[in-house]
Design a protein around this nucleic acid. Structure first.
Lengths: 241, 241
DNA sequence: CGGGTCTTTGATACTCTTCAACACCCGTGG
DNA sequence: CCACGGGTGTTGAAGAGTATCAAAGACCCG
């Protein structure tokens, strides 16, 4: 069986990131073998069952985390009881960098997950010493800033079907890095999580899904997968803004 | 005349950021004198008149920037002609870290501004060599990620007056760092910029401003300032979500 | 003082939210 | 193996709020 980069063993941490320098200048492979071992030395593996909370908003931010395997969501409960999901964190994502020593939002496992827990003090010390390693972190955080802006773009849209279309495109391109677009895209999270991510009501997500199906763009298969029937049409709708 | 940190001369760069480590661990002053001089050595000052574009979306991202003085906006034009403002960048803000050597959005001076232009290659080299300096950048980018998430929270709100209230609170706390809440808050940007930032129509912003005034929460003074009449009430409305 | 830009105000249509009831799926227990 | 129950997801109807189109008003600069 051929080992693809997608399914690399979750033993050593990696980053999912696009560097900001142009190709000819890239001297990084988004974590070298040595750097990954260094991170493993600093951190400890943590296994999370679905719905387990990694940390809560407001608690002491002693650790940063790297997702080795699985899906985690970062969210925040609003005073009104509404919940907002800021990000779905997948394998090779970094999270847990907080403000003034306190986490600003909570994180919960969506699926069975494995995390690498990195004590902030040790991590900070290691980063300051190893400029190249730290540069990878800088690249990664910048990448996450851009992803956050993409979500902001998504939320800016007013029409629910358009938002859902953009979301599906995001999920699709995540599983199809470099490969031809996957035609069946897994959706590990619940409808309610999707709604909280899209800033819509649960019902609107459901209706939008029906709209997309009626337009013959996609076909939802069970609760946790979509088949892309007409990827071009979906992309066109997603890009409309 | 006493020189406050707020009005420090725009000769040396600074960062506006909240560190992620807890106070006892903070060994940084958000750029030491030496680091600031190092950045000045790498970069060059650029003066921008209002409406001048620092760079355009899609162009080669050869430089990062630090705002020394003035206000700059980061925006993106959607296919539909709609414009989204992602961030207002103030003194001590960092911007221009791009993806794969291309800027993802455009930046334009809102007011007369002074920037420090930092060639990416030199900057990257300097950061890799000076772990402490790079840690400041990491802190700063993390700070901007949080600010991006705050905007996302803002956009998630459905009611226009609430969004505007949150925006005014943001602007107010920016000018009142450590000081008692300022009662007159400058709004350098146009209504249309505010609308693009809030994800609302221009008219909705105008109407929301009227609502806030009728509720005796604020009083708009001219086009570029607000007086906070009832800061607690405004904060309460802003926090409602 | 005048032109042009920016902003405010008004009326209508449209979409999403909300509340409510129903259908579905899955694990559990009989 | 089948029935049951709770969480999850879907569908329906009414109401709230903003976007849009249109026009008048305020402000700024030359």
């Amino acid at each position: 069986m051929v080992k693809s980069p997608q399914s690399a063993p979750a033993t050593l941490p990696r980053f999912r990131a696009v560097p900001f320098l142009t190709p000819p200048t890239i001297t990084t492979a988004v974590l070298t073998e040595r750097q990954r071992r260094e991170l493993m030395r600093i951190g400890t593996k943590v296994h999370l069952t679905p719905r387990t909370i990694a940390y809560r908003e407001g608690s002491a931010a002693d650790n940063a985390f790297i997702v080795l395997d699985g899906v985690v969501k970062g969210y925040r409960d609003m005073p009104s009881g509404r919940r907002t999901v800021f990000a779905f964190l997948f394998s090779r994502d970094l999270f847990g960098l907080a403000e003034r020593g306190r986490y600003l939002n909570s994180t919960q496992a969506v699926t069975q997950s494995t995390l690498l827990r990195l004590p902030m003090r040790d991590l900070a010390a290691a980063l300051k010493q190893d400029g190249d390693l730290q540069f990878e972190f800088l690249t990664k955080i910048t990448h996450e800033l851009r992803e956050s802006q993409r979500r902001a773009m998504l939320i800016t849209r007013r029409d629910a079907p358009g938002r859902l279309a953009m979301f599906l495109m995001l999920m699709a391109e995540r599983v199809a890095i470099g490969v031809r677009p996957a035609h069946v895209v897994p959706l590990p999270m619940s409808r309610s999580d999707i709604a909280a991510y899209l800033g819509l009501s649960l019902e609107s997500v459901s209706r939008s899904a029906a709209v997309l199906e009626h337009r013959m763009l996609v076909k939802f298969e069970g609760r946790h997968a979509v088949r892309l029937i007409n990827p071009e049409g979906l992309a066109k709708l997603a890009a409309a803004v």
